Simulated assay, not measured.
Amino acid sequence: MLNLERLRTLDALARHGSVSGAADGLHVTTSAVSQQLAKLEREVGQQLLAKNGRGVRLTDAGRLLADHAARILSQVEMAQSDIEAQRGQVVGEVRLAAFPTAARGLFPTALAALRAGHPDLVVRTTELEPEAGMRAVLRGDADLAVVLDWSNKRLPVPAGLARAGLLDDVPDIAMPAGHPLADRAEVDLADFADDDWVSWPAGEFCHEWLTSTLRSEGIEPRIAHLAAEHHTQLALIAAGFGVCVAPRLGRGPVPEGVRLVPVRPLMRRHIHAVWRTDADRRPSIRAAVGALREAGRALDAPLPQGS
């Protein structure tokens, strides 16, 4: 009989493409992955892996068995969901991922509510950008991810994932206190045609959104600085190095010398939770979504200027 944990190891190798990637995904050593795969080869009596340069690749038999392993593990997930749903208890472990401002803005409140309401549930969290978070859920490395899209740029959700809205986040434009528009009640993006911008790193979803949005306003973006963390972006603005989009979710204290002005027409970030449809009935997933929604509702009131 095939060993489920060895099938899980083969599935991780197929999804991550390398022994080291499988080890990271399973939180074990590369030696443990190699040992499990060697035992699986002995069980099936066929070679599942072949050397490929400095790495490995799946043989035809390995690919065939990996496809079966993915389906078997999905069925196991569905069985676990059904058993948990029948029992109706929020227990076990749930792994949550979120992009940084959502992790900072939602996780502390949501996790506190889960700990108070479901003390037998173990919650693990990590920070991942939206696209990486969805990949982690699809791979089985996370149970739920908090992701985002914008009112004018949607983030496609792959087949096999369910989603639920958590909140809408309204960003402002951050600029130095000495900027000519710093005392305005609201601004247009077109007002910043001659400004340098501080943006998220190239290739990230929000960077692509910013550049496409500015171009739609007839502005060729002058991206002067790239920073993943909003606190770093705001520090650059405080030092006079441009302007940036400053979401309110997870914003925290704003440095002295920075002014925040609402933009028209109103921009919105739509914040969602996504999880695998085969885990849809798990009480732990439903509890996590509920806690995240409640944390989002607590942030529904608009933030005061400069907050």
Rank of each mutant, 00 (worst) to 15 (best):
Asp183Gln: 15
Arg184Thr: 12
Glu186Ser: 15
Glu186Cys: 13
Val187Glu: 11
Val187Thr: 11
Asp188Gln: 15
Asp188Lys: 13
Asp188Ser: 15
Asp188Tyr: 11
Leu189Phe: 06
Leu189Gly: 04
Ala190Gln: 07
Ala190His: 02
Asp191Ser: 11
Asp191Gly: 04
Asp191Cys: 04
Phe192Asn: 01
Phe192Gly: 00
Phe192Glu: 03
Asp194Ala: 15
Asp194Phe: 12
Asp195Val: 02
Trp197Ile: 03
Val198Glu: 07
Ser199Pro: 07
Ser199Ile: 05
Ser199His: 05
Pro201Arg: 09
Ala202Val: 13
Ala202Phe: 05
Ala202Thr: 14
Ala202Lys: 13
Gly203Ala: 14
Gly203Met: 08
Gly203Glu: 12
Glu204Lys: 10
Phe205Met: 04
Cys206Gly: 13
Cys206Arg: 12
His207Glu: 10
Glu208Phe: 01
Glu208Pro: 00
Trp209Thr: 03
Trp209Leu: 08
Trp209Gln: 03
Trp209Ile: 02
Leu210Arg: 07
Thr211Gly: 00
Ser212Asp: 13
Ser212His: 09
Ser212Trp: 07
Thr213Cys: 02
Thr213Ser: 07
Thr213Leu: 05
Leu214Val: 07
Leu214Gly: 04
Leu214Ala: 03
Arg215Leu: 11
Ser216Asp: 14
Ser216Leu: 12
Ser216Trp: 02
Gly218Gln: 04
Gly218Cys: 06
Gly218Asp: 14
Ile219Asp: 06
Ile219Pro: 06
